[in-house]
Nucleic acid binder design. Structure first.
Length: 287
DNA sequence: TCCCAGGTCCTGA
DNA sequence: TCAGGACATGGG
């Protein structure tokens, strides 16, 4: 590790590709710069990342932020082992090869809950826009970077206090009242939400689905992307298409696709889902 | 104009 | 249980 000014440089980083990580649909606050680097917001930090082969440079952070980076990017996990265990047929092998640098980020539960509630019946560019609008309107100004202003993800306090009309102005559409209601509940149930990490998958799923706006798919995304429940295989339109094209018949129901995949990929189901999602979307499979 | 998007909720069999 | 329609918004 090299430290220089506001930069930290890591060398010989394995199984790490910023294009794969930020474009596999797990996160919505990272944007690609013209020079190929990505800038995004993690908690109250604005971070820029550039990569040259196995060298990864984090800009606009101090040494004190390194533990945050290490946790967020899941740097302690061996993706080599995951890939080895997952490599059970030619299809998944191809998907892994295609998205070899994917990592499942360690994202905040609250932000992930709201972000995936917004994802319902929505497109990724719109989801990103709504989240940016909410952050600009209800988050705190962090800093300017590269001529652009950045704001933190809004707290539950701010969103629960916001009039629904103001949330609607952020283009949240029919999800606006659900967001406000979830924020109000979060204030009282914060401890329970941050304890989902320690709960069983079934208990976590059942709890999350008690929220209006969180159904099976969104709940599974929250479990996978923020609470380290890697044994789930969320099924969305892309995953449905790629699975029906490559693994199961066209009339297979989402519930059965999920079960098929979880039986096949076991405790690595979530990683398989990410490799397949990226593979399907980048190659337009089933579309 | 119509269709659809990392779905969820509600309704009626 | 389960299929079918509604739901805001905007791009193709």
């Amino acid at each position: 590790m090299k430290k220089e000014g506001n930069k930290i440089t890591l060398q010989n980083v394995k199984d790490f590709n910023i294009n794969h990580i930020f474009d596999c649909g797990q996160c919505f606050r990272w944007n690609k710069e013209e020079d190929g680097s990505y800038t995004g917001v993690v908690k109250n930090k604005v971070i820029n990342i550039r990569q040259d082969g196995s060298t990864v440079e984090f800009d606009n952070i101090s040494m004190d932020d390194y533990p945050l980076i290490e946790k967020y990017f899941d740097l302690d996990t061996s993706y080599e082992d995951i890939k080895k265990n997952l490599d059970t047929d030619e299809i998944i092998a191809e998907a892994i090869k295609f998205g070899e640098g994917i990592r499942i980020l360690n994202q905040d539960e609250w932000e992930t809950m709201i972000s995936f509630m917004i994802s319902a019946n929505n497109r990724i560019p719109m989801i990103k826009r709504v989240i940016e609008n909410l952050s600009t309107s209800f988050g705190d100004f962090i800093c300017s970077y590269g001529g652009k202003d950045y704001y933190s993800f809004p707290t539950a306090e701010r969103l629960s206090a916001a009039p629904v009309e103001k949330i609607l102005e952020c283009k949240a559409g029919f999800r606006a009242p659900r967001i406000k209601a979830a924020a109000a509940r979060f204030l009282n149930e914060k401890d329970q939400i941050y304890n989902i990490k320690n709960m069983s998958y079934d208990d976590g799923l059942a709890y999350l689905k008690t929220y209006s706006g969180i159904g099976d798919k969104v709940a599974n995304c929250i479990l996978l992307f923020s609470t380290r429940h890697f044994d789930t295989f969320p099924v969305d339109v892309w995953i449905r298409r790629v699975m029906q094209t490559l693994y199961v018949s066209k009339d297979t129901k989402d519930k059965d696709i999920k079960k098929f995949a979880e039986d096949k990929f076991g405790k690595y189901s979530g990683f398989a889902q990410q490799y397949l999602f990226y593979y399907a979307r980048e190659n337009g499979i089933g579309k």
